[in-house]
Nucleic acid binder design. Structure first.
Lengths: 338, 338
DNA sequence: TTTATTTACGTAAACGTTTGCAGCAAACCG
DNA sequence: CGGTTTGCTGCAAACGTTTACGTAAATAAA
């Protein structure tokens, strides 16, 4: 079984490798007659160009990398969906890397990618990341990067996010209008701007409606969900006056449900709950969970499109534009009045 | 900004490219002294080997491809998680391709991958796939393949699945023991062996408990969920005697919930529901959904490990072993007695 | 001492593709 | 008819890495 490559095709056709290559790339400097001959044989032999030889020679890999904290999360799964779609349409391949929110792993991944394996990078930074040298060093390697959702304020490049501040504001206002007066805010403690924006929206909404800001009502969750359940239980027991919970991330909302079940607090009669979430089954929960849902697919697709435009133009450094897509608030049973 | 590669390192160190290469690969034919010198400079210059040059020369890409129908599905997301973990530990990269259950897209993807971009392939075939020529042709390209979950019976290679027959049997038996006598089975109509096994388990469980097999109770769903809701509504209206539903795939169980809500059928009092599902929020649904849950992460990891072993040994064709991991039945409110 | 053997490094040829350059007809222009 | 253009093709040099082979010196064996 002889390998089928440009050389074997050229031999069989009695022409040079160069001509075969040019014919297949539809170059204008090869006659139509030869083009058809070449194409016919290539199809017959099921020729597929060697991606690595091509990449090496052209210094283009037709591949983008996606670095995200996790994939078993409906937001990121949908984002990948959008990314894959945009990449496929542009003839690009998609490499996936998971950081599991581990800084060391993120650094290691980014470092490896500087070997030229990818033409560009899409990234949602790990929540533990505080030093961004590894990301900045991508610039020296001429690898453009676009952040989505969990952006990195310290690095100037294109970013695609949702309107986190407004969403936080709306969610809080929604609880206030449903009658809540003592609203807790649950967030994952880190230095991601995304959480800060949502928090600020929460604070401003409270202020706008003349409610006091009580730091004791702000719960900083951790990585481990089991621990979060404990923290939330403590909070609800310590502060029985809490009548509303705004969870900055999905799993904190879920944990809140668990704690309420356990403590016998009724949702929404005793406590109303709203949370950021892309859970498809949110409407089927008991009770149906009110959510702020991000357009995850569109975020992924938009980020990929911006990156691919830059890649095609060989722009290693992107203008630091910010694309903001709007989240949608779905009011369901968990924040119903009464 | 001069490029940093073996050549530049060699020049700076006053040695040959070959020695530098060997030193970095920790070859025994280079002295410890030079190794340390080389490594020091490589680190200082942040040298990263060019993956494509290496791949071209060694005819090894250190990359595996994952071809799946979709990613916005907790089963596949978890599987990817397991795959990525196994790949990372072995120093491999993971390319993701989504078929969206479209046969033509699957063929196109597989065809492209024959260019040598991947050393091996993990695959869950599209539900519409009936012809497997594209998959068989991978053998000629010396690309090993491992199927997981949605396997392809016609191709002899390694396969990782769950005990679908037994799970179908158990699920049905679970409904029978909960008192159901007219049990509908919802499945997605296709020629995937996976659905056939679950169906057979359903049939055998009915027979074993002396219940008649009524073909009218077997509903073949379609791709479009909206349409499925209509089909299920029709079925439940046509056959008001149905007191149990066994859904072969998650979204059919969810659709059943929607229809029951709409028709005012109470779960589990009027109808009990169980379904295959990896939905993390199953326990929080209204009512909590009984599920047969596949060990998705382990399936992905096991499949990847088998593939990587073959890749490392340059075995292009795998012995047609079958690894079967066991699903777990979680009995929840939706199938409670009474 | 001579002859093997080992150690440490260099030379150069691959891997398959792309592309600048040159060549060489045929066609065209004055 | 000399000269220029145009259309098609081939030659050969890259891209960065790996590795078979050669070689020189150092060491061991005789």
């Amino acid at each position: 079984m002889t390998p089928v490559n440009l050389k074997s095709l050229a031999e069989e056709l009695n022409m040079s490798i160069a001509t075969v290559s040019r014919a297949l790339r539809d170059s204008h400097e090869v006659s139509e007659a030869t083009k058809t001959r070449v194409r016919a044989l290539a199809a017959a032999r099921h020729y597929e160009p060697n991606a690595y030889a091509s990449s090496l020679r052209r210094n283009i890999s037709k591949t983008i990398g996606v670095v995200i904290p996790k994939v078993a999360n409906h937001f990121f799964a949908l984002a990948i969906n959008g990314i894959e779609e945009a990449a496929r349409l542009a003839g690009y391949h998609v490499l996936i890397y998971l950081t599991h929110d581990d800084y060391a792993r993120e650094v290691s991944i980014v470092q490896h990618l500087k070997g030229g394996r990818v033409d560009g990078l899409l990234m949602s930074v790990a929540s533990g990341t505080e030093d961004f040298a590894h990301i900045k060093s991508l610039r020296e390697a001429n690898i453009p990067i676009v952040f989505f959702d969990r952006v990195c304020a310290e690095v100037a490049t294109a970013k695609v996010t949702t309107n986190d501040y407004e969403s936080g504001y709306q969610a809080t206002e929604h609880l206030i209008q449903a009658g809540c007066r003592h609203i807790a805010h649950l967030l994952i403690s880190n230095n991601l701007s995304i959480g800060q924006f949502r928090l600020q929206g929460y604070l401003d909404a409270l202020a706008a409606h003349g409610l006091p800001h009580d730091p004791d009502l702000i719960l900083h969750g951790v990585m481990d969900n089991q621990q979060n359940v404990g923290l939330i239980r403590e909070l609800l027991l310590r502060r029985p006056d809490i009548d509303g919970v705004f969870a900055s991330v999905e799993r904190l909302a879920i944990s809140t449900y668990h704690v309420c079940n356990e403590l016998g607090r009724r949702i929404p009669q005793d406590i109303k709950v709203i949370g950021f979430s892309n859970l498809e089954a949110a409407a089927l929960l008991d009770p149906p969970l009110s959510t702020i849902t991000q357009p995850a697919y569109d975020i992924g697709r938009e980020a990929a499109k911006i990156l691919l435009r830059a890649v095609e133009k060989k722009k290693a450094v992107l203008p630091s534009q910010s694309v903001v897509l709007e989240s949608t608030l779905f009011a369901r049973q968990s924040t119903a009045q009464g």
